[in-house]
Each structure stands twice: as structure tokens, then as C-alpha cells.
Amino acid sequence: MRTQRLVARLYLLLMFPADIIGLWWAVGSPLIVDSNTICKNTKLLAGRQKTICKHEPEVVAEVARGARVALLECQYQFRNRRWNCTSASRSLSRILKTKNLRSFTPFTAAGVVYVVTQACSMGTLPQCTCEHPARDKSSDGEWEWGGCGDNVEYGYRKSRDFMDARKRKRKGDLTTKIQLHNNEAGRLAVKSFMRQECKCHGLSGSCTLKTCWKKMPPLREVGIRLKETFDGAIRVIISNDGKYIIPEGITIKPPSKQDLVYSDPSPDFCKKNRAVGSLGTKGRECESNSLGVGGCDLLCCGRGYSKTLLAFRENCKCRFLWCCEVICDTCERTKVVHTCL
């Protein structure tokens, strides 16, 4: 239930500007993000969002699912960080410009691309089909395009139409420029890393001809790429003419389309602070023998940690019996858990 509430809060924050978030808090945020919830109040929608809600409700359902998938992937990638892609605050808009929250938006944009494209390939979206690229003339007849390629262009377009619709109407301010930039970086983390998969055809397993198609990278790979880009995110300011974002430091190269950017530093997230949306790290599990990310020294912010011995049971000494039966003993194990104070 808590995760569902968080999905709803983050999704509404990413889809709509901060000045209308208060309305959702006043009426109570929905527990589950679905197409009916998103499209219920057309006054909160803009441009292409209205069109998609009216004519393609099944796409909106996949958009919502993409947001949920993105949240879970973000939480996995940042599971050992002080900020683990969660927040306890209604005031998320206050830190939307920080490195952490601003860098969550590309996860959502990528998640929407991924899930919509996947639904297209599975045939659950009647308005799109598999991708069928033109035959590659340089293949020399050794392979040809075929099969059901992932139509990433469709997923990319729907993610852009829905995620960027309202922000494009306000694209003159720094916050909007950063969000649009990071949304695009998230989409490119999928689109720019499409891979080619092939299947052999021929008698007796020979490979006289290969049929090939385009396939998205694994979602976990996309998440790893975004986390690595997050670690190298570039702090930016707006140019004097107000048209561009530029690095804050004159010696830093301008961000590419695949770089992540932010304008304000994040809080340290060590202590619970509703004003900045921090849950704090008290009660988080840590690794006592690690000096890096996830280690108790860093994760517990120098407050120390407790040790708890947990007992549990698991299958062990498994044997295979002819035919088709596996028998295991039950062994008792213990595990030391370290928890931040």
C-alpha cells in the first residue's frame, strides 16, 4: 500500500506542475495509478495528454504501468544509497530541482518507453505493430530483417507526448528545461541501445540464412546505465539569453543529450526531514565490512549501527532421485544483520 501511494505521488509530480499538486493532496491521492485516475480531470491535462486519454486509454494504462516499473527499478539501483528512490514528503516539488529527485524523471521516461514498446510487441496495443525495418542492402544475403522487432519509435513517441506535454508550454524556466532534458536522456537510454537479435534458418540446424530484428536492451541494463549517468550528473545554470542550460563551471563540457543534469545539490538524506522529503537512514540495513556505498559508515552517517542475529530455515543437501524427484533436508542458518541507529 505504501509503495502504491508513493507511485501515485511521484507519478503526479512528474506529470503535472507543482502548482496543482496541492489540489491532489486536498482531495487525497489515489492509491493506484490507472488510466481512469490519470484522465479523470481533463483540466489537469495538456495538449497530447488529452488526446491520448480520449482516444488511447489502453496506452495511458501502459504509461501508468511504466511509472510503476520505473519506481521499482530506481529503488533497486539506489538500494544501497542514502537516498533509495523513496520520499516521505508531500513537498517533493521543493527538491524537484535537486540531483536526486531531478534524476528520477529519466527513470520514469525510460520506464514508459520500455513498457509501451513491450506492449506493442506483445500485441496488446491495437494501434501499433511490430517494427519492420527496410532490408539492409549490405547484408549480402546472409541475413534479412524479419520477425517481430520492438517498435521503440512508438514507445519513444508516446513517452514524449505524455511526459513532456505540459512542460513544453512552460519551457522558458530552468526547472522545466532540466526536466525536459532528463526526460529525453531517459528515453535515449532505451532507444539508443537497441540491439540486433537473429535466428538461423536451414536444414539440420544449419545457418544458411538468418532472420534478424531489433530488440530493446534488458530493463536492468537500462537502469544500470541511468545510475551510472546519475553519478556523473552535471550541475547547470540557464544561459544569459534564457534559451539553453549550460554547465555551472566554465571548465565542464556542455551536457550531451544522454547526460543527466540538475541545478541544486541534494540534502544528505541522513535524518528524517519532511521539508525535503527525506526518510532518513535510521533502520536501514547496511554492510559492516564495506567502506563504500552501502557500507555502515556511509549509510548510517556516522551514527553507528546495531547487530542482530537472525535465524532462518532453508532447503539444503538436496538430492536427485531417479526419476524426477528432488528431496532436500531443512537446515537452520543464522545471519547477522546490521541496522543503522
Rank of each mutant, 00 (worst) to 15 (best):
D259T: 07
F193N: 12
R68Q: 04
I252C: 04
K50L: 15
L203A: 15
D329F: 13
V112A: 10
W322Q: 08
R187M: 01
G147E: 08
C130W: 03
C128F: 03
G66K: 00
G147T: 06
S288T: 04
G146L: 12
A26F: 07
K158A: 11
D173I: 12
K137N: 09
V63Y: 04
N289F: 06
G155H: 12
R195Q: 15
G202Y: 08
E287H: 07
I327A: 11
L96C: 05
A26T: 09
T176K: 02
S89H: 11
I238H: 06
I250P: 15
F312E: 04
E184W: 02
S266Y: 13
G141K: 06
W25V: 07
V33F: 11
L96M: 14
G111H: 01
E153I: 10
F269D: 06
T334S: 15
L226F: 00
N84P: 07
H338P: 00
L101N: 06
I178F: 02
K199N: 02
T108K: 02
W143Y: 10
R65V: 08
T108A: 12
W145V: 05
M194A: 09
L96D: 01
T334P: 04
L92A: 12
Y244Q: 03
V261Q: 01
A61G: 06
E332N: 14
Q49N: 07
K199A: 04
E62N: 03
D173Q: 08
T281M: 08
M194F: 11
T334Y: 12
V27I: 13
Q179W: 07
K40Q: 15
A233H: 00
S256Y: 10
Y262H: 06
F269N: 12
A64S: 11
A46K: 12
C323P: 03
G149A: 05
G149V: 03
N315M: 14
L188Q: 09
R135S: 14
C328S: 09
G292E: 01
F193M: 10
P217Y: 12
T108W: 07
D268P: 14
A275L: 14
R5E: 12
G111I: 01
G186W: 02
E325M: 14
G22L: 09
D264T: 14
C316E: 06
R68N: 08
P255K: 02
K253R: 15
Y154I: 09
C85E: 00
E131S: 15
Y262M: 05
E285M: 05
V326Y: 13
C200S: 05
P126Q: 13
T339Q: 02
I32G: 02
S89R: 14
S306H: 04
I252D: 06
T208V: 04
T281W: 04
R195W: 11
I21A: 15
A134G: 04
R284L: 13
L226P: 00
S35H: 09
C301I: 00
I245S: 03
V222S: 03
I20M: 15
C130V: 08
K167C: 07
L174H: 02
V190N: 05
P267L: 10
K177D: 06
C301H: 01
R170C: 04
N36F: 08
I38K: 00
E248K: 15
